[in-house]
């Protein structure tokens, strides 16, 4: 048996990289677990593709109409796909007790919520960005508009993961938490939806899209600063 660890380790105390290292540990952990369980996250990607593909079939083949609804449809489908995956953000770890262990880490809880939200974005957001150009073609969007759509999602999907982590933390352990999560979080998604879809509309109508994208980016910065803290407090309340 090795000797008992002492509490005081000066090399660790002065280590200014330790929060970043811990953040990376949390992200890597969630990605490893997602890699072991591919079926879980592929469902929400397929959901996204299916929902978006249903619209051209339902609305009909007129390119004008499709171009008009396209950006909004892709954005709404992205919101719904993220909501589909969010209840699992903390639930699995809560069930098997590893969430408790993460809260008992010497590192601040806000790094846990931030790390898990970022991992959620890597797992759910990035694949979404990769499929989107293909889906844009279905709505006969011009190349420039598809580019703006992808950029708007690139800025917008982290917002969805970060805000969603608040809802996931608040509804943790509740029965029917999924529906409650949707009701709680969808209204918060509205600014992202307006600016995201608005940017693509701007590109289509020639008004320009930079204002919309700037506002979307500002919203991302705001969310990044606030959401992890709110989610951490919510998590502490939920686990008590």
């Amino acid at each position: 048996m090795t000797a008992l660890a002492t509490h005081y380790d000066p090399t660790r105390e002065n280590d200014s990289f330790s929060p970043l290292r811990f953040l990376w540990t949390v992200i890597r952990r969630d990605m490893l677990l997602a890699a072991r369980r591919r079926g879980d996250w592929l469902t929400s990607q397929f959901f996204f593709v299916m929902v978006v593909s249903m619209f051209p079939l339902g609305i009909g083949p007129e390119p004008e109409v499709l171009r008009m609804v396209g950006p909004g449809v892709v954005w709404v489908a992205a919101l719904l796909a993220s909501l589909l995956s969010l209840p699992r953000l903390f639930a699995e770890d809560y069930r098997d007790g590893s969430l408790e262990q993460m809260l008992l880490s010497p590192e601040p809880t806000v790094l846990v919520t931030l790390g898990k939200a970022l991992a959620h974005w890597c797992i759910y957001g990035i694949p979404l960005l990769l499929i989107t150009p293909l889906l844009g073609v279905q709505f006969s969007l011009p190349a420039e508009a598809i580019g703006v759509l992808v950029i708007s999602l690139l800025i917008g999907t982290p917002i969805l993961s970060l805000l969603g982590s608040i809802g996931a933390a608040l509804t943790l352990g509740l029965r029917g938490g999924g529906v409650l999560l949707t009701l709680l979080i969808l209204p918060l998604y509205v600014p992202a939806l307006i600016f995201g879809a608005g940017a693509v509309d701007g590109a289509l109508s020639g008004i320009g899209y930079s204002a919309h994208l700037s506002l979307l980016a500002a919203f991302l910065v705001l969310t990044l600063m606030v959401a992890p803290w709110v989610a951490a407090s919510a998590l502490k309340v939920s686990i008590e």
Binding site: A5, H7, Y8, L32, L33, R36, R37, R95, D96, G97, S98, E100, Q101, L104, S105, P106, E107
Partner: peptide, 22 residues
């Protein structure tokens, strides 16, 4: 002194905190 305390303490609760996929 949360960080000092949590460095010196280990908790094993009702649920094990063992991940099924690892």
């Amino acid at each position: 002194t949360r960080d000092v305390y949590h460095r010196e303490m280990t908790y094993v609760g009702h649920v094990n905190g063992v991940k099924d996929d690892l």
